Amino acid sequence: MPRITLVTLLAAVLFFPTLASAAQISASYQVNLNSSDPGLVVHSSDIADNPFTFDLNEGDSEYFTLFKIWTGESAVNDDDQLSQPISVDFSFTSPEVMTGSVDGETVGVKDGFWGHYQAGELTWDGPLDLVFGALGDGLLRVTLFDAVFNEGYLFGLHDGEYYGAKVKAKIELLSDASQVPEPGTLALLGLGLLGLTLRARRRAS
């Protein structure tokens, strides 16, 4: 291999990080919700593995059912129409250790003639964006989707887990993190590059 080509190759490996072809996504989650009055009393049960694990390529996403939500109340009373907070805490161990939460609210609603339609509503404030990687160029987005649960059409709720709603989640790897060479590798490549440079100067003199 010509000297200039070898020097160029070493410099490229030394100064330009390489991109990983895929990233492993692994996290556990915890649902926090309103379990007492006032407000609609709600319950949840995990559906996705906890923790869950899958692989994503940059630009890809995973869409899955995270948990189920329901109420045991048989009707929406006045106090049930007060919004109450709900959140899902995520603890990631891969692609690196990081934490964050998606926040939202639950509320009981009445509609129609004399409130004959009743239901629980779940809405989320927005997605969770997590930045990762040694260079801060990795970006993972967690989105949870709104849901309506325990709908009733005859002046009450269809109470119980059976009439609950499955809450969907989407995790997107918007940008994978660059893989930076280990310090030992950098030192070795640096010495090699320095040696080639000195050799080239001696031949030129």
Rank of each mutant, 00 (worst) to 15 (best):
69 I>Y: 02
70 W>H: 09
42 V>K: 02
64 F>N: 05
51 P>F: 05
19 L>A: 14
16 F>T: 14
85 P>S: 09
40 L>G: 07
33 L>R: 14
73 E>V: 01
16 F>I: 15
5 T>P: 04
37 D>G: 09
18 T>D: 04
29 Y>H: 07
77 N>Q: 13
95 P>Y: 06
67 F>P: 00
42 V>G: 04
78 D>M: 08
69 I>Q: 08
77 N>W: 08
22 A>N: 11
73 E>M: 00
63 Y>E: 12
104 G>E: 02
52 F>W: 10
46 D>P: 02
43 H>P: 04
44 S>K: 03
67 F>W: 12
39 G>D: 09
54 F>N: 07
94 S>R: 12
14 L>R: 07
44 S>E: 10
32 N>F: 07
6 L>S: 04
43 H>T: 10
103 D>Y: 11
39 G>Q: 11
82 L>P: 02
33 L>H: 14
24 Q>T: 15
21 S>V: 13
14 L>G: 01
22 A>G: 06
21 S>T: 13
21 S>M: 06
30 Q>Y: 11
79 D>R: 06
89 D>H: 09
24 Q>L: 14
42 V>F: 01
66 L>R: 11
51 P>Y: 08
52 F>D: 08
89 D>G: 06
102 V>Y: 06
56 L>N: 00
68 K>M: 03
42 V>P: 04
53 T>I: 01
50 N>Q: 06
22 A>Y: 12
98 M>L: 12
96 E>G: 03
65 T>M: 12
44 S>G: 06
28 S>Y: 02
40 L>H: 04
106 T>C: 11
6 L>H: 10
53 T>E: 13
6 L>F: 05
81 Q>K: 13
97 V>S: 11
100 G>I: 03
103 D>I: 03
94 S>L: 12
100 G>S: 09
94 S>D: 12
61 S>W: 08
19 L>R: 15
98 M>P: 04
85 P>K: 02
57 N>F: 00
21 S>H: 10
93 T>E: 05
53 T>R: 11
77 N>V: 11
59 G>E: 07
104 G>A: 03
77 N>R: 14
45 S>P: 02
39 G>V: 11
53 T>L: 10
4 I>N: 09
40 L>Y: 07
68 K>R: 15
66 L>S: 09
47 I>W: 10
68 K>T: 10
58 E>N: 05
14 L>A: 10
27 A>V: 04
93 T>A: 05
28 S>T: 12
32 N>G: 01
105 E>V: 13
36 S>E: 14
5 T>G: 02
94 S>A: 14
80 D>L: 06
24 Q>V: 14
16 F>E: 08
19 L>P: 03
67 F>C: 04
37 D>M: 12
51 P>G: 04
101 S>F: 01
97 V>Y: 05
76 V>K: 05
103 D>W: 09
36 S>F: 07
29 Y>T: 00
86 I>L: 06
41 V>Y: 03
55 D>R: 09
101 S>Q: 11
10 L>E: 03
35 S>K: 14
19 L>W: 13
16 F>A: 12
55 D>A: 11
100 G>M: 03
49 D>G: 10
